[in-house]
Each structure stands twice: as C-alpha cells, then as structure tokens.
C-alpha cells in the first residue's frame, strides 16, 4: 500500500494499492485533496488520517510513501515533503520521491492497455503556477506500452512566453495524489530510478547579502 502526498500546488493525499485486477496493476483506494494553497499545514494530518480511515487500513499497512517533490513556489511544498519523510520514518518504510508534474502527465495520456486508447498526442507540456508571473513546466513524450510518460524536458522555471507553445498544454492547479501513487507503484515495479530527494524550488532564496550598514544620519 502506497501513501502519496503532494503539496506543491494545493494539498492532495491518496492511498494506492497493488491490484492485479486493475489495468496497470494499481488501484486508488482513497484520495483527499483541496486546491487551497494557504492551508497545507492545517489539512495535511487529517487528510492522511482520513485516507487511512476511508480505505479501512491501519498505518502499519503502508509500505512506502510517495512524495511529490515539486516544482512548487509556495512554502507549502515543504509541508508535504516533511510529512512524507516523517510518516516514512515513523513506519520505517522508504520515501519514493516523484516530480509532481509526472502525475499530471500520467493522467494526460490514455492508458495504452485500454481499448479506448486511440492515437494519443505525441507530446504534452505540463504547466503549473510559479507565482511572480512565472511558470513551471515539463515536457513529456507519449508513453510506450507500460503507460509511463517520458519526461524529455523540465521541470523548468520561466516567464510565460518561455513555455513551449507548439505542444498540447495542460495547466494544472491540482496534483492528483492518486495518480502520483499509481505512477510510483508502476515505476517501482519497473525498477525505475526515482527523483532526487531534494525539494524542487527551482529558485534561490529571495535575499542578497547585506552591503554593510546604512547611515542613519544624513
């Protein structure tokens, strides 16, 4: 059972379980979320608890925690990563870090194993708000048979006109934690390497070294 947590946009939490009967081998057992970007620390604990209650499982049945690593501009990004690490520490289980955009891309392409697949778009660009009139974006290539899209560029930070404009564009305001969990489960089964364990701020702290004391007398 995978617990997935993402606070790079709003807050979203989900439980995904291995399920041989589901296409791709995983099923979302519970999912909670809010697009509110101001209340990550308030809601994170109850959402984790409520997902466990909804799925009817104790915390001890979670085998790994999937952490959405961003990119994210808000102080909130850290809340989910801190929660994921603390939960994993509490249960002595691993953290699986995943680029948050990957979950949006995962939902953007129809599952190749489903009959309705048809001809998927070749490439998409996933875009999220970075505040200060900037955007985060990542470009994905359509998945091969295993259904996992291939990130070919990004995540990056740029002004709006820096976003590739010749691709199908998906502006996401919510990172679906359920998809994040299912994606991570499939990645793990495939033996993929996970993202680095660092939060993806893509921006340096907003500060410059002091240039010495300013005069108080003119």
């Amino acid at each position: 059972m995978l617990l997935a947590i993402d606070t790079s946009a709003g807050t979203s939490v989900a439980l995904a379980a291995a399920d041989p009967a589901s296409p791709g081998g995983y099923r979302v057992r519970a999912e909670r979320g809010t697009p509110d970007t101001m209340r990550h620390a308030e809601v994170i604990g109850a959402m984790i608890r409520d997902c466990l209650v909804d799925a009817g499982i104790p915390a001890s049945e979670v085998t790994a925690v999937v952490a959405g690593m961003g990119p994210g501009p808000f102080t909130g990004l850290r809340v989910g990563i801190a929660a994921a690490r603390a939960f994993a520490l509490g249960r002595s289980i691993p953290v699986l870090p995943v680029v948050s955009h990957d979950a949006v891309a995962f939902d953007a392409f129809p599952d190749p194993s489903s009959a309705a697949a048809g001809a998927p778009p070749e490439r998409v660009v996933v875009v999220t708000d970075a505040r200060r009139r900037e955007l985060y974006w990542s470009v994905y290539h359509a998945p091969s048979a295993d259904g996992i899209p291939i990130r070919v560029d990004g995540p990056r930070l740029s002004a709006p006109d820096g976003v590739p404009h010749d691709l199908r564009r998906i502006d996401a305001t919510v990172i679906p934690a359920g998809s994040l969990g299912v994606l991570a489960g499939r990645m793990r089964d495939r033996g993929d390497r996970f993202a680095a364990g660092d939060a993806l701020y893509l921006r340096s702290p907003d500060v410059t070294p002091s240039r010495g004391q300013k005069r108080v007398t003119s």
């Binding site: 947590i5 620390a41 604990g45 102080t75 850290r78 603390a86």
Partner: peptide
C-alpha cells in the same frame, strides 16, 4: 514557513505512530 515544516512532520508522525 519554518513552523509549517515542523507542524507537517509532527502531524504525519502522529498519524503514522497512532
């Protein structure tokens, strides 16, 4: 922003440990 890191971690730890 600093407080939120501790609060997020503490809540998850409390749920994980019940």
């Amino acid at each position: 922003g600093a407080l939120m890191v501790g609060v997020g971690a503490a809540k998850a730890l409390a749920v994980a440990l019940d």
